[in-house]
């Protein structure tokens, strides 16, 4: 059975793959009627990272109120949802199952289709949500705490994986360096803040994998930071943070730009939690302008985990694949469905 969603089909999206409990209502993959995100950052901060069991417990407590708020803000407290989409992976399995179970229950009660959504695909669609003029093909740079991917999006649902990290994700590198510098958790915003007072040229950290490939590596950079601080204990934290950030952004943008030129993309899309980094956003836009390419840099709220992107990706998946059966579960290691 393939249900054909209308241009204005109203989709409720649910996202619980990590430490954000989120629900959103989107009409026709384009119009965000509401988007509610309840962050658990404070619950995990003292542990220096997301604790899966604590995250799962919080999702159970927060999800119903978050869904209720999303429905009320969308002006749909009494129903009107025409499909329910939820992230089924990748992510923390215990957390994923909270959202999946709630979503399937809602689909059953409302007698509407359920759509399982790939979290990575949802991030790709965040760019479309805010800019309907986005024309394919595009190259997407997806950078978060768990992923660093360079993707050639040829068409809707048609992806080619150009490159990915061979060790740490970009967000992970930010967290580790922030912890080492004593800047706290989460590391991305902390380094972004401190780096504003530093000189990005102060230290020339190595740029790994400056070869033909589109793969990334960040563990060597982290080691270089640690070694530099050991050898030069007098160095200013702001300078270290700024120089580290410069090295990460430099590699990310250079490779994305090179990939976009190579595949003849019409535009470049930035996504994922690390895309909230102010220097990365700026440099990404500059690169697109220089190449005369259309740039899609979603608002910070749309880059970090949210459910509007899940609803939007759900609309597209519903159109291409139809509803997901109600006996679907979650998959912590779900990959982006790529063509080779």
């Amino acid at each position: 059975m393939t249900a054909h969603p209308r241009e204005a089909t109203v989709v409720l999206g649910i996202e619980t793959s990590c430490d954000e409990t989120a629900a959103a209502v989107v009409s026709g993959a384009q119009t965000v009627l509401s988007s509610v995100v309840s962050s658990q950052i404070e619950l995990h901060a003292r542990f220096g990272g997301v604790v899966p069991e604590i995250a799962s417990r919080a999702h159970v407590d927060l999800l119903t109120p978050v869904i209720a708020q999303a429905l009320v803000e969308a002006g749909l407290p009494d129903g009107g949802v025409e499909a329910v989409a939820a992230t089924v992976g990748p992510g923390l399995i215990g957390s994923l199952l909270v959202g999946v179970s709630a979503a399937k229950a809602l689909a059953l009660v409302w007698d509407v289709p359920f759509v399982g959504v790939n979290h990575l695909e949802a991030h790709l669609y965040a760019g479309f949500l805010e800019d309907p003029s986005l024309e394919l093909p595009v190259v997407v740079l997806l950078v978060s705490g768990g992923h660093t991917l360079l993707i050639h999006m040829e068409d809707h649902g048609r992806y080619r994986l150009l490159g990915q990290t061979i060790d740490d994700a970009a967000g992970e590198a930010f967290d580790k360096v922030a912890r080492y510098l004593g800047l706290g958790y989460p590391g991305g915003p902390a380094i972004d803040r401190v780096a504003m007072d530093g000189d990005p040229e102060a230290i020339r950290f190595p740029r790994a994998m400056q070869d033909e490939s589109y793969d990334f590596s960040f563990s060597g950079l982290k080691t270089a930071v640690v070694n530099h601080v050991r050898r030069h204990p007098e160095v200013g934290t702001a300078d270290v943070a700024a120089s580290f950030q410069e090295a990460v952004v430099d590699v990310l943008v250079t490779k994305a730009q090179r990939a976009a030129q190579a595949v003849g993309a019409k535009g470049m899309v930035l996504g994922g939690g690390v895309a909230a980094n102010s220097v990365l956003r700026e440099r990404f836009l500059d690169a697109c302008t220089a190449d005369g390419m259309h740039a899609f840099v979603p608002s910070r709220a749309m880059c970090t985990d949210n459910a509007a992107m899940v609803a939007a990706a759900g609309w597209w998946r519903l159109r291409s694949d139809g509803p997901t059966p109600l006996d679907a579960g979650g998959d912590p290691n779900l990959r982006l469905p790529v063509v080779t």
Binding site: V60, L63, T64, I67, G94, V98, S101, A105
Partner: peptide, 19 residues
């Protein structure tokens, strides 16, 4: 079992809310 428990409670809460 924590995960099983949460599956049931998350579904039950969602249904009660929707109904």
């Amino acid at each position: 079992l924590f995960t099983g428990l949460r599956v049931g409670i998350a579904a039950a809460k969602a249904m009660a809310h929707a109904l």
